[in-house]
Nucleic acid binder design. Structure first.
Lengths: 212, 212
DNA sequence: ACATCCACCTGGGTC
DNA sequence: CGACCCAGGTGGATG
């Protein structure tokens, strides 16, 4: 069954209920949203699902919980063939519900950052996931931060790290962005083709040569 | 069938074949060696056996792999009654061969540290294990780093870490050693009763009070 | 309680 | 550059 994607430009209501007007699908009912924490998008490779939301919308049969969880398949609310498979389980040690395996890929592909919002929808037995970025100062990124695009990409972010004193020379559009959240680690964030490059925060101002 | 241990003091060829002249046994053929990583001797309690070596010298029948591995019994190449039993299994998740149960005991008893070498030999169906420390400048340790001795031992190496500015006061023989290997992480290594304590490398010289 | 073991998982590196 | 290794992890079970 194909999903009809009528482009509704923007619904005025931004409540947790409806689609938020990014041109996505219809016959879903919202389950819940979460503003992701630094840990949710960091090296822990897991999303903590708030317990009350998990037990209300994504109950784990208990047998499944003891059996090491289950695998949930979420369709991408933006359409496309992409289906996101996450291991979903209960960690008795921390008494929390988590999505583990597969989650880090979603974070990477969607360029999720702390403060962004992930939304989970359901249409009958069909599950959907969507996300939206936080409101950011600065320009809209040159490349929309979506889909497993095969754009220019630093393979080794270590090598891509920019020393404060270096000049950064780039070709197309570049946007310097201040992350709103992620105050846990105070970092500067340079957004390049949808890739976040993290710079050590120094007293000195950042020196950049932007050749646009 | 007893194994005759003729003391050939040192085979001139140091190739991966022979004994290294520590007065150990003969009729073995070397299978492989590994320079152990920090993880191999750390809290993970497992030794990763490089895949190509594992499949060449210690194949797991596949049925055994699926059955959760097997137990291998290694005789101590230095002689003695000691036999080291390791669970040996294949982790399909990481596609790697590992020795798990029993390995941490070997690490402890032999005071194995990162950079040391473990060697596996075979004599027909009989398996042998040996290890040697990395070449170190400085004196031979006061206590030979052998056998299940129940000597003084820091349970938590974290706590045992020494800050460069501190004075270290110790009772018996102590040797300060510069690690030749492990240049990957440049660290000072202080050897104390066979335990390696790692110090952050600083410009300042190490300050020690040695009360012998 | 604590250490160990076990079955997973992942990113970086390498080929 | 995709595929694969493997070093470095995890939670949970066990004794």
């Amino acid at each position: 069954m194909a999903l009809t994607l009528a482009l509704e430009s923007s619904s005025s209501s931004r409540g947790e209920g409806g689609g938020d007007g990014h041109g996505s699908c219809r016959p879903r009912e919202s389950m819940f949203e979460k503003v992701v924490t630094p840990s949710d998008v960091g090296k822990l490779n897991r999303l903590v699902v708030p317990k009350h939301l998990a037990e209300k919308h994504l109950p784990l049969p208990g047998a499944a919980a003891r059996a090491g969880g289950t695998v949930l398949c979420f369709h991408d609310a933006r359409g496309g063939e992409a289906a996101w498979r996450f291991r979903y389980s209960y960690w008795s040690s921390s008494q929390s519900y988590v999505m583990t395996k597969g989650w880090s890929r979603y974070v990477r592909d969607k360029r999720l950052a702390a403060g962004d919002t992930v939304s989970f929808y359901r249409d009958g037995a069909r599950l959907f996931i969507d996300c939206r970025r936080i409101r950011r100062a600065g320009v809209v990124p040159a490349v929309p931060p979506r889909q497993p695009q095969q754009a220019f990409f630093f393979h080794n972010q270590q090598q891509a790290a920019v020393q404060p004193q270096q000049h950064l020379v780039v070709a197309p559009r570049v946007v310097v962005v201040d992350d709103e959240v992620e105050e846990a680690r105070r970092r500067r964030c340079l957004r390049l083709f949808g890739v976040n490059l993290e710079l050590e925060l120094r007293a000195e101002p950042l020196l950049l040569d932007l050749q646009l």
